[in-house]
Design a protein around this nucleic acid. Structure first.
Lengths: 351, 351
DNA sequence: CCCGCGAACCTAATCGTTTAGGAGGTCCTT
DNA sequence: AAGGACCTCCTAAACGATTAGGTTCGCGGG
């Protein structure tokens, strides 16, 4: 098309003012049935499609929500995104994913740049899967952009911000208890960085369980991707004088993947030589060799709840704005939800 | 913040016109070093962030690229997206994923609505992972929105449109040949709908191989998700008088998942009772029980190439526009790329 | 001393919408 | 017949940026 048709083109072709055309297309009143029909017909013939940038500029609205993640190699995000997308579709919003990890590695600069970018595009809201830097939370607050945390919780300076998480402490206790009941007394927790707030809770739960069952617990930390997990665990096991632990607890999906790869590479038998349990159930867990005992965080549901919460806050904001009130996000205490999760017992624990 | 600072606010605070401020912030010339510094300082103090909707409207540019998919439950997309994101980041563009499957099921209406939505937001370009309806291709063409296909190829009415695919025919031949050399003579191909053009190629290759090795081949089709695959295969096997095939070929990732679940549920031993091979290598394939023999489509590379191709076309478009030429996407014949792929032989085939 | 030129800056139009504030016309009520 | 109440439709001002086309001013050359 040489020049894309605009409202004015439709207006000229229909012999009506742009006002009437606009109203007709947006289903507003103040337009006779005849005019509306004419407008719709002409618009169709011309192939008119409204320009969203112009609409958003004029109406001061925005239609997309950003999901901020790092390390998309985490398969857990698939289900999460599914839940989010499904829910957002109901209110005609779209999700864009903003990954603050380049080549798999997180950098604070990239986090800052990403947030800046989100503000530039005046995102309607943010769903964050990891704890964001306080100054970035401040920025989002300044611009009245609501944030909902998922899985991770916000930095303590932002306690009002909603979060949908699992009760990671109890969950970890369950994991530890199961290991303890198997009689294992020598555990290794393969953890990811504390940037994901779940890390601390999970470690705390595991440690509490270890204490209760009189088990020894070692915690090692790796970057949040498969390669790092592989390297970290290998280095740990290769340290002279170090014996295999009796049980390995993988902190999340990438940690699990890395750990399984090193155990396979070394010909270690699971669960006979070492038992393996992990967080974050995912589609293939039951089909692995052996089938994996994992904690079932229902991440699709978490995604749904997060998206619903965010949607509600955004809608409230819009209403407030119409009333002439400031569009400060109205967070409610009950938006901080903590779901429980079950241990799905399969074979890798020794059962 | 009560009212978000705009260019005008910065202009007033700095005592300079909006023109000067705009030029200073966008690093243009015609501004003295002193003024530029002042502007930057004031902008920082006020927390000014440009409004992208206004910029895009005025400059008639757009910064995001849409990835059109259906059925995100396909794990194969993770690597693809990784490649795409990584590449787009280089040119300051962002990817938004537009899923044209609601609750996992594809509908033509949703495809139309999605395309309409992409045009409304004046997307810079589209990466399509499945064949789009001809009228939607027409629409995108009318709006000068370049499209690059990935994995699938476009409908025959749009032969000039680029596509980055694997050579599915040869690949399928490899799969079939390997099965043939194992001496298996009774194959079942679990396929997804032909909306993904790979389906036809893959079936053709398998059939050719079956012919060559004198094997019997049955093809059954399911919707492109795990549940459907499970149901379809179960129904097939439950048909009275039907025996287990000697080899199952899973057409893609969801088909594989469904198939493995029914085989596990029935206590069928792999590869002793039936051999399993699949398309689309993915992260967990080597850790399954047994480790899976799969075709290695390097989907991250495909993503990179697709994003590079699209980026180049968009940049050419922008240049053409600056010259005053029409912004018709300049597709080149060499943009139709077909990569080869290897069979990764593990254990599920009987090796 | 005057002219010309370039740098620095400004005014105002523009991108494609939405919408406040009227204007004109029809029709009912009294 | 006059006054209102409604519709329908229009004009023109936003929204927040970019930029074409001036204007002003200082300075160097003739």
């Amino acid at each position: 098309m040489a020049r894309k048709p605009t409202l004015r083109d439709v207006s000229r072709a229909a012999g009506l003012s742009v006002y009437t055309v606009s109203r007709a297309l947006s289903n507003g009143d103040g337009v006779s049935a005849a005019s509306r029909e004419l407008v719709l017909k002409v618009a169709r013939e011309l192939g008119y499609v409204p320009n969203r940038a112009a609409q958003e500029l004029r109406k001061n609205t925005r239609s997309s929500v950003a999901v901020v993640t790092a390390s998309t190699s985490n398969y857990y995000y698939i289900d999460l995104m599914k839940g989010i997308q499904r829910t957002l579709r109901l209110s005609d919003r779209t999700a864009i994913v903003a990954d603050i990890a380049a080549e798999g590695v997180y950098t604070p600069e990239l986090e800052d740049a990403t947030i800046q970018d989100l503000i530039q595009s005046r995102t309607a809201g943010v769903i964050a899967t990891l704890t964001l830097a306080p100054h970035n939370m401040k920025l989002l607050e300044d611009w009245d952009i609501p944030v909902v945390f998922v899985d991770s919780i916000p930095h303590e300076s932002a306690t009002r911000v909603p979060s949908i998480t699992t009760d990671n402490f109890s969950a970890s206790m369950k994991v530890g208890a199961h290991l303890g009941e198997h009689g294992y007394r020598d555990w290794l927790f393969l953890a990811y960085p504390a940037r994901w707030s779940t890390r601390a809770e999970r470690e705390r739960g595991i440690r509490a369980a270890a204490l209760k069952y009189g088990a020894g617990i070692e915690v090692i930390e790796s970057e949040n991707d498969v390669e790092s997990a592989y390297a970290t665990l290998t280095a740990y096991l290769d340290t002279p004088g170090r014996a295999l632990p009796r049980a390995v607890i993988a902190g999340n999906n990438p940690m699990l993947h890395g750990a399984l790869r090193v155990l396979h590479a070394r010909g270690v038998r699971i669960p006979d030589d070492v038992a393996v349990v992990a967080f974050d159930e995912f589609a293939w867990a039951a089909l692995l060799d052996p089938p994996l005992t994992v904690l079932n965080e229902d991440s699709e549901t978490i995604g749904v709840i997060a998206a619903q919460t965010l949607t509600r806050i955004i809608d409230d904001q819009i209403k407030a704005e119409l009333r002439g009130d400031p569009p400060t996000p109205a967070y409610r205490p009950e938006d901080r939800r903590e779901l429980s999760s079950d241990l799905i017992i399969r074979r890798s624990c020794g059962c």
